[in-house]
């Protein structure tokens, strides 16, 4: 049997809002490590990795590892049936082809049963060691930049140098360049922009995906953007001391 109880149920709603437009169907893996997910978008350009650790839940019981295949749009529909302040319990019996969502508020409770799906998925090993530039900045600022740039062009060039991080785009009406410099705010660390770099790096990515990633903004005040020497982009939002949601995006390459 698998059962988890999340007092701050709105967190799960925010997680679904962050990933449901990027990924259609995904396996939620339940193990002693936590409630996790790894899935690619249908074009195999982006990968999302989610982890919610057991200690973040009021109650977490996992008798044996199970994988629950869910359509994320349907899961989101069910989560929207619960109130924002509800406590959410998710339960699945061993061998069952359904999962139960229970919403509790001081006024009552509601149960929803959703059919599970068989989804073929592969697990991917993620090597964090090739990182060559890391930028941590306010998530709202990153969201604003992606939105502004997508009104001008389709692709963003992200360049990290000693000067700062530059986001540039080009479109029919002209070009746009936005530079964020390192700025450490001791009193409000969440408003800081911190750049760590072992070598300058520059790569270009589709803005459509970047804007999709920023749907995770309500989960965290800050976002961490990493570029590897292979020009793979990772965008990470931490989830209130219980885990993270990470988006990986493949670069566009000059043909």
């Amino acid at each position: 049997m698998f059962e988890l109880r999340l007092v701050q149920g709105s967190l799960l709603k925010k997680v679904l809002e962050a990933i449901k437009d990027l990924v259609n169907d995904a396996n939620f893996d339940c193990s002693a490590t936590g409630f996790s997910l790894q899935a690619m978008d249908p074009s195999h350009v982006a990968l999302v990795a989610l982890l919610l650790r057991p200690d973040g839940f009021e109650h977490y019981r996992c008798d044996r590892n199970i994988s629950m295949g869910m359509n994320l749009n349907n899961m989101s529909k069910i989560l929207k049936c619960g109130g924002n302040d509800d406590i959410i319990t998710i339960r699945a019996d061993d061998g069952s082809d359904t999962v139960t969502f229970m919403f509790e508020s001081p006024n009552g409770s509601a149960n929803f049963e959703m059919n599970l799906m068989d989804i073929d998925s592969e697990h991917h090993g993620i090597d964090e060691s090739k990182c060559c530039a890391v930028v941590r900045m306010p998530s709202s600022e990153f969201q604003r930049i992606c939105k502004v740039l997508s009104s001008i062009g389709d692709t963003v060039v992200i360049s990290v140098t000693n000067e700062g991080v530059q986001f540039s785009t080009r479109g029919d009406i002209g070009t746009a360049n936005i530079v964020c410099r390192q700025n450490i705010n001791v009193d409000k660390p969440e408003e800081s922009t911190v750049i760590e770099m072992s070598q300058p790096v520059s790569s270009q990515f589709p803005l459509r995906y970047m804007n999709s990633f920023t749907k995770a903004t309500p989960l965290s005040n800050t976002v961490t953007i990493s570029l590897t020497s292979e020009l793979l982009l990772a965008v990470e939002y931490t989830i209130a001391e219980m885990g993270y949601i990470r988006f990986y995006l493949a670069p566009k390459i000059e043909d």
Partner: peptide, 14 residues
């Protein structure tokens, strides 16, 4: 022309 690379090229299957 800019080609979009596939994410699978960056990860190993486990």
């Amino acid at each position: 022309v800019n080609q979009q690379s596939q994410i699978t090229a960056f990860f190993s299957k486990t």
